[in-house]
Design a protein around this nucleic acid. Structure first.
Lengths: 133, 133
DNA sequence: ACGCTTGTTGAGAACCGATGTCAAAGATCT
DNA sequence: AGATCTTTGACATCGGTTCTCAACAAGCGT
């Protein structure tokens, strides 16, 4: 079993995630940490995020360009997200209806080990206002 | 406006997609074409697929590892997929309920230009049987 | 048919996010 | 403090995708 030592770097990553409420890429987080003076290696940020994801401490999702984005969500249960493409602003949502629909459809086709990807992307009100300028 | 010349290579890519009913990566398609004697460059396969995707002639989706998968779908209207993680076997599905739910939720949060990603992943009956051996 | 023009091709380089390497650094235990 | 053993970080590497650019070939006009 892993020991999971609490190091300065890991703490820093978790803290940064706690402050930033929105989905961020590993590189953005690395950038943020450096900017505030924390000296942390990029590889370490990746490792910390991966560990957190494995422990379901953070949610991971893929941006439209394939980059992985991370976020510390309020609820740990299964849920989905409505994310702003521009700024990463996130609203947690759940759709019991959708869950039911997904598993029903998949089972009807004889599929097993079903997982679903359901994410909503859009432009939030703030970004829309900013773009209109 | 683009001229979109019909070249031997482009034809080959489209034909391969027509024969293969399932989602395939660009590299797999390239492999397939070479195997059957068609000499086509990898970059060309990527370009052809991108052009087809832009023209909505093929559907693109991201595998869990981030690789892009392409497929020529029967229907051109908006729909979703139930895809086998192992073999790429695909079933087209649509969920009017889900569509409605998605746009309602997003609009309620003041988001614009809404898009949704809804894909189902599983293991198809054949692959499950193969794995059980 | 035959050039001509212009979009297309393809081998290799470049790019980029992500992961692996390994010696040095530092948590934790005794 | 000392021993142990995970973690770190600069750098190399990897894999998918895109770029570069000279050679090539569709499609057009003649």
């Amino acid at each position: 079993m892993a020991a999971a030592r609490m190091t300065r770097q890991r703490t820093a990553v978790v803290e940064a995630l706690d402050e930033l409420a929105d989905f961020r890429s590993a590189q953005q987080l690395h950038e943020t940490l450096r900017a505030r003076g924390e000296s942390v290696g990029l590889a370490t940020v990746y490792r910390a995020l991966q560990a957190l994801a494995d422990a379901s401490e953070v949610d991971v999702l893929r941006a439209e360009d394939g980059e992985s984005l991370y976020r510390r969500c309020a609820r740990r249960e299964h849920h989905h997200h409505l994310v702003c493409r521009q700024c990463g602003r996130t609203v947690e949502i759940d759709g019991p209806t959708v869950e039911a629909w997904a598993s029903k459809v998949a089972a009807a086709q004889g599929f097993d080990d079903i997982e679903h990807t359901i994410e909503l992307w859009g432009t939030c009100a703030d970004c829309r206002a900013a773009a209109a300028r």
